[in-house]
Design a binder for these strands. Structure first.
Lengths: 223, 223
DNA sequence: GAGTGGTCTAGACCACTGT
DNA sequence: CAGTGGTCTAGACCACTCC
């Protein structure tokens, strides 16, 4: 029912019955029109508001957004699923694991002097797919020092063992460094799609990761 | 009230009172615990489920997600706002406007033979910021041929005049072409963050756009 | 002050799905 | 079949904010 209402309202917006900036009828009137309770109308309109199609204010009423759809919901790759869903065979290779001093360009973000560095390559049908460079705080997660990461990816280990509270994710294009190029088997300077993710717990950064995709990778989302 | 419940449940997940994969109490029991109606519990849990923290199934109950937070909500840039929110001055320059045959690499996606091509540069404090290459279907939007796009960006015009229904957005890294490099004033081959967006109405593609950012651009989202 | 959306309640029925 | 979440209702009060 609320979905029917949501779709009907969306259609009116898309067919310009209600145009960007227009005020639409209030919940009570719509409830009468659709022959349902106000709560049901509220459910439908709240969804459309969350999705960016409507803007709602008390007393001022509900308006069609001037800039429809301002958000895209990107699914963050769980690499294994991402590769297997394309029908390919997933594998994982540990490249490096060791306690190290955090590079200066990261030190500010991480606010820790030394951490466990885990570097790994994710492969699709045996071909390089993604190079993961991860730093894990051994202060926040002392247990991490017991794990070899030879058979389990850092991602999976963290999901099972870490208590996180918030973080950020960033996307950008970077030229392949010498190391990137050797590991991913591409030319130095090739344009790489890079995802950086910082995860924090209650007491500061738990982990920071840079994931560099093979050139040509696209991250797609319906809108 | 429902926000208090949401936060409390989230805290229990983050403090591992309820661990990934665990079944949590059903709505009725939680309603008793929190001293509220079941609908209020439902509201809180539905939100957490939408956000990817919980997985809910009828009869099976509610479990803590094994892969917490699988989604990032990216705000799609309204270029003007994006630049002005950084405190810089926004300007816009039309580079090219004309009816043209759609390049073959686009023809499949667009399914139209000829279209209006609008190319423009968005500037931040007078410096190149983003190169926009857009194709607009003149079949779907005959009015577009009357617009010069000298004083209004295609983006803004489309928001006001187009009826869209759905689309996709894709992000990737690309090496700057010769044309990119001339317009953005960067080296040929520089890694560009590129956003492609296809927008469809009821009768096919309305517009396709490629937006190439200056090297170094980051798209960031809280998680 | 008054109109609007935001939320809560108590109760009900239904749809799905694990057993 | 039975337990769980999904939804709907009718009514209520409240918070915000425009006038």
């Amino acid at each position: 029912m609320w979905e029917r209402i949501r779709d009907e309202v969306l259609e009116r917006i898309q067919n310009r019955v209600w145009r960007p900036g227009d005020l639409i009828p209030n919940e009570e009137d719509l409830a009468v029109e659709f022959g349902c309770a106000r709560a049901t109308i509220n459910r439908a309109l709240r969804q459309l508001s969350d999705d960016g199609f409507l803007e709602r204010k008390r007393k001022a009423g509900t308006r069609v957004a001037l800039t429809p759809v301002r958000h895209a919901r990107l699914s963050i790759p769980i690499i294994k699923d991402e590769i297997e869903s394309s029908g390919a065979n997933y594998s994982y290779a540990l490249i490096h694991r060791g306690i190290a001093v955090v590079p200066t360009h990261l030190a500010l973000r991480l606010k820790m002097d030394s951490a466990l560095c885990v570097q790994a390559l994710h492969l699709s049908d045996g071909q390089p797919y993604l190079y993961e460079d991860r730093w894990i705080s051994s202060t926040a997660l002392p247990d991490v020092l017991q794990e070899s990461f030879e058979n389990i990816s850092a991602n999976e280990w963290l999901v099972r063992n870490a208590t996180y509270s918030e973080g950020e994710i960033a996307f950008q294009a970077e030229a392949a460094t010498k190391r990137d190029s050797e590991i991913l088997n591409v030319k130095e300077g090739a344009p790489l799609f890079v995802l950086e993710r910082t995860t924090r717990g209650d007491e500061g950064v738990i982990t920071w990761v840079r994931m560099a995709y093979l050139p040509g990778h696209r991250m797609v989302s319906p809108i």
